[in-house]
């Protein structure tokens, strides 16, 4: 059956003689919507998602930037203060950098670097589990298990694990004769203790990415490399890892984002302490703008903007990589 549009086209062709069978269908009067259907439909389908996303994500980013140039307690009138919040935060002009900001920033860097360990650790566990023996599927899912648990519970579990008196860690250390250590109570160790807790689910996530990736490694290439005498590290580095590139990319993305988003664990395990030594930017921001320390929304927004700018570097890189793939794919 021809669509009406096609039929009217045929009808429009001038013909030498009148058609033998006269067209009994009157020309179909199609509405404006019908005529523009292909052009309009995507926008109709996009409208609800765009509306929600704009109201709750896109516009608030702009608003936060705007608020960061104000002093505001969240209730009364906001006063324009120009870049004063940033000056105070970053120590521009004749002031010193906010000490809390300094600690938070360096802790963020620690998180970023150490969190990336989740990728090789995940790969290692994935390689260990990439076998076919009875019950291996159950092992795989149990190894993945920590990722499904909420960070709040992971935080609780680890803070009990670290307890100086009741904790299992010190019970084990006691067995080998090492003295009890209070990881979360020591300003020099607390951040590392929290990062270790965060690495637990993150490693599980990277592991599952690699396990799925390993499924699609081409067995013929591995076999061919094996005939050429490649094995162990060389095989991993030159033959297997290049094929795992998509998995590595996603592991990298989710690990970086996870490191910069760390909030739950810090809030649950130490609440920023001891002596503010475990603060990161996301926690610092929350503390300044929405806690018993006060409602300095303007200052908080400035911290959020700084964190956003740090994240923007990574977002730009991710988008650039995806855009490149998109071009190749078409």
């Amino acid at each position: 059956m021809l669509r009406p549009a096609v039929r009217s086209q045929i009808k429009g062709i001038p013909m030498a003689t009148a058609p033998i069978v006269p067209d009994r269908h009157p020309p179909v009067q199609r509405g404006w919507y019908k005529r523009n259907e292909i052009r309009l439909t995507p926008w109709l389908f996009l409208a609800p998602a765009m509306l929600f996303f704009a109201v709750y994500v896109i516009v608030p980013i702009g608003q936060s930037v705007w608020i960061s140039f104000h002093e505001w307690d969240g209730l009364g009138e906001a006063t324009w203060v120009g870049t004063a919040n940033y000056d105070r935060l970053l120590g521009l002009g004749d002031q010193n950098m906010d000490r809390k900001f300094e600690t938070s920033f360096w802790n963020n860097i620690r998180w970023l670097i150490l969190y990336l360990l989740a990728i090789p650790m995940g790969l290692f566990i994935a390689l260990f589990l990439n076998q076919t023996v009875t019950g291996i599927r159950v092992y795989k899912s149990l190894f993945f298990f920590p990722f499904v648990i909420s960070q709040v519970v992971v935080g609780l579990v680890f803070s009990w694990f670290y307890l100086p008196r009741e904790g299992l860690l010190n019970a084990i250390l006691g067995l080998v004769g090492a003295g009890p250590i209070n990881i979360l109570g020591d300003p020099d160790m607390a951040t590392y203790g929290i990062i270790a807790a965060g690495l637990w689910p993150q490693t599980a996530y990277c592991m599952i990415l690699y396990l799925t990736g390993l499924n699609s490694v081409d067995p013929e290439q591995v076999e061919a490399a094996r005939l050429d005498g490649a094995k162990g590290w060389r095989m991993l580095w030159y033959v297997v890892l290049p094929q795992l590139k998509p998995a590595t990319f996603i592991a990298f993305v989710v690990t970086i984002i996870g490191a910069l988003r760390s909030f739950d664990l810090i809030s649950i395990m130490t609440n920023g302490g001891p002596f503010g030594s475990t603060r990161v930017l996301s926690f610092f921001m929350f503390e300044e703008s929405l806690s018993e320390f006060g409602f300095r929304m303007g200052y908080g927004a400035a911290i959020a903007v700084v964190l956003f700018i740090i994240m923007l570097f990574f977002i730009a890189y991710f988008l650039w990589s995806m855009w490149r793939d998109e071009k190749e794919g078409r």
Partner: peptide, 21 residues
Amino acid sequence: FIFIAGNFVPFQILMVPVRDL
């Protein structure tokens, strides 16, 4: 790409306006 990028932003930059809204 806007949808992807929005998905990666830190929660904190949305916090004050979203709470206000």
